[in-house]
């Protein structure tokens, strides 16, 4: 269980103008500025939940994950992770969590991943039998057999990320903080990692908090999302509800037997795309049934599919709305 209440993190950063004169001035006086990286967010995540933690660059996602994993002290507010105060960084706490950062690695660079696995076994006090079982399971799920004996530096990015995940999960953490775990991976590898995270969550009832700019990760893994922007929480709830609220439209993708005039489409909905025999219409959810019936009866239809708007568009509109709200206030 993760409980966060009115969490704040304010960094004091030095400001300096460019140029030699400013550099010399800064020797005597260094003006500072308070940056509110996280500004009073509250949320509650139950055991076994998979939650997407989203926001634009600089929104405060990584700062929050670092506070939750005990790397940063909060400026104010309270947080609790699996019954522990993260900032105390007790050994029992560190043994229950893991933080996977797509851009940082824990694997020993010049040694095979198997060496990191053995080291982690000792550091996390994993009993020999449990270690073997978990490693066998991870090796199978992530297809690591051919990788664990090669020096880490000789592995591809995707192979390294799979081994990173294995190293991070050998001690069977109950809480997974995943910060961009699929960054830089190809589509097949991304799918493998997503499947694996879901399987681990289901197998061990582990809590997963995931940040990612790849909305496919979020759509595939997270029934619930928490969205922050400029350090403040702007959404906490089911992903479907967020999509419905921000983009209350469906997309109707049509493949036609022959081209049609724009006038034939005008009263069906807003035309998003139109080529010779392919049309994408935006239709209000409430009118969907009627529009589909009309399409079937009036157009030379070959194929029809109903889609949610891309999650990227949903997020863009959500952040634009939040920015407009800030400007107005």
């Amino acid at each position: 269980m993760i409980a966060v209440d009115q969490l704040r993190k304010i960094y004091r950063v030095h400001k300096r103008q460019p140029g030699l004169a400013a550099a010399l001035r800064s020797l005597i006086h260094r003006p500072t500025e308070d940056v509110r990286a996280v500004d009073g967010i509250s949320f509650h995540i139950n055991d076994g939940e998979r939650v997407g933690f989203l926001g634009p660059n600089g929104a405060g996602k990584t700062t929050t994950l670092k506070m939750l994993s005990g790397l940063l002290y909060p400026t104010s507010g309270t947080l609790e992770v699996d019954g522990f105060l993260p900032q105390k960084r007790e050994r029992a706490f560190l043994q229950r969590i893991t933080l996977v950062m797509g851009q940082k690695q824990q694997l020993l660079w010049d040694l095979p991943p198997s060496e990191t696995f053995l080291l982690n076994r000792a550091l996390y006090d994993v009993p020999e039998k449990e270690f073997r079982e978990t490693l066998a399971e991870l090796t199978k799920l992530l297809e690591l057999e051919a990788l664990v004996g090669k020096p880490t530096r000789q592995l591809s990015l995707g192979e390294r990320m799979k081994c990173e995940l294995a190293a991070a999960l050998l001690h069977r953490p109950r809480v997974l903080f995943l910060d961009e775990p699929t960054i830089g991976l190809d589509v097949a590898m991304q799918a493998t990692v997503r499947d694996f995270v879901r399987a681990y969550n289901e197998r061990f009832n582990a809590t997963v908090l995931l940040t990612s700019h790849d909305m496919d990760d979020v759509a595939a893994l997270c029934p619930r999302v928490i969205v922050i922007d400029h350090g403040s929480l702007i959404w906490d709830g089911p992903l479907d509800d967020l999509v419905k609220k921000v983009k209350p439209h469906k997309q109707l993708r049509l493949r036609l037997a022959r081209p049609v005039d724009a006038a034939d489409l005008a009263d069906l909905g807003r035309v998003v795309e139109q080529s010779a025999t392919s049309v994408v219409l935006q239709v209000a959810q409430a009118e969907l049934q009627a529009v589909v019936a009309k399409v079937l009866s009036s157009l030379p239809l070959v194929d029809l599919s109903v889609e949610d708007p891309p999650l990227e568009d949903v997020m863009r509109d959500l952040f634009a709305g939040a920015a407009a709200g800030r400007d107005a206030s």
Binding site: K66, S69, G70, L71, R89, R91, L94, Q95, I97, T98, L99, M101, K104, Q105, Q106, N120, L123, Y124, D125
Partner: peptide, 12 residues
């Protein structure tokens, strides 16, 4: 480089 964070996450 900030990689100290990875060491701090280990229980040693």
């Amino acid at each position: 480089q900030g990689t100290l964070a990875m060491r701090l996450l280990r229980p040693i």
